[in-house]
Design a binder for these strands. Sequence first.
DNA 1: GAGCACGGAATTGGATCCCATATTCATTTT
DNA 2: AAAATGAATATGGGATCCAATTCCGTGCTC
Lengths: 221, 221
Amino acid sequence: MKLNSVDISKTASASSIVFEALRKAIIEGDVKEGEPLRQDEIARQFNTSRIPVREAISRLEEQGLVKTQRYKGAVVSGLSADEAEEIFEFRALIEPEVIRRAVPLMSQETLETARASWAAFSASADPMSWGDLNRDFHSTLYRASGLQYHLDVIDNAMDRVDRYLRAQLVLSNGMQRANEEHIAIWEACVDGNATGAAELTRRHISGARESLIQNINSLRW
Amino acid sequence: MKLNSVDISKTASASSIVFEALRKAIIEGDVKEGEPLRQDEIARQFNTSRIPVREAISRLEEQGLVKTQRYKGAVVSGLSADEAEEIFEFRALIEPEVIRRAVPLMSQETLETARASWAAFSASADPMSWGDLNRDFHSTLYRASGLQYHLDVIDNAMDRVDRYLRAQLVLSNGMQRANEEHIAIWEACVDGNATGAAELTRRHISGARESLIQNINSLRW
DNA sequence: GAGCACGGAATTGGATCCCATATTCATTTT
DNA sequence: AAAATGAATATGGGATCCAATTCCGTGCTC
């Protein structure tokens, strides 16, 4: 007998659905810094009770995306200029090393997927999609390293500064510049030039950091 | 009227108490790898309901300390040799940089506290306390950097390998060697030798990694 | 009119109850 | 006797209810 079966054990629980949705909304800036997360309201929106919502919020807090105060609830945690800068410094430290180790392990398929990402990035006229495509590009390359812990840590760091990165891309010629840098990184990968890809990645992130510092005031929304 | 008042808003919620207790029990190896966490049993032990326990477990999962399967519950997640090694590599990448930046910022008090930590470490005959004292020593030095995000990330990495580190210290002359290396790192800090402290820290962690690889089989408990 | 006390509404934290699923074991069927 | 079936139990996920705390508006006092 042949059935179109799905693995029921893999269906998501309500709390993880709520968690993913809130995470996405926060990192994309749909809920603003300082904005409180009302359990009741969220529960109604997802047509569920507050229990899964509370679990989702406690997970978000563990990730540093929200801060909760007893009996006062959770608010989306913003970053000071210093904190944002620190996270970019962190990324500039770890991501070059990851890509350096990833380069020798990149398959043809990885390179092709990455190429598709930067192509879509450079072709997209929609600023809303830039953030995702930018992230896809880097993640694809990093993933080849097989360093799962590093990947998880990078994801968290990205989550924390995602909003700022998006704002960054639409500012001045941020998107244009990022695009050129992506191509350079990609070419280094194709050439099997690990240290080159690492150095370009480091500059890519440091450049974003510099640009962020300069524009930090106009980013305060 | 003068009362010995406490700030009630700072009293911990049940879920955070449970979380801290479970976290400590897991990283110290009191609950073994693969051991399931029974919500009911834990709730009874803390004289509370399952709700706070569930929130605690979801936070632990977010930290990677446990894995849960729908309708099957949470089990303490162990690390494969590769995963443990990866985390040591991660630490060897980030901790030297943090201490390098911390050295110029270290106060007299910081150095004194760190000295007390390694003194206690070297004097202690109790293997159970070695893990804590070892961690205290490094944390004290790192904290001077003021890099809060880096500190959080390091804490998480430490949590994940804490069990292995403890086992490490009692093996062969692990404790003896760690002690000597601590003193060397501390002296570099006192001398204001940032790059030296960084390099010693890198070797300290790499050494632990090597030793771990060699003993990984005897550590499979 | 300003400031404060009081009280109800809103909100979060926790407890209890119910349902869904997994597992184990007895029972039936062949 | 082996395999399939079904009941019993254990366990986790979620809903509803209650308690504790905070927030906010009203009215009172001076």
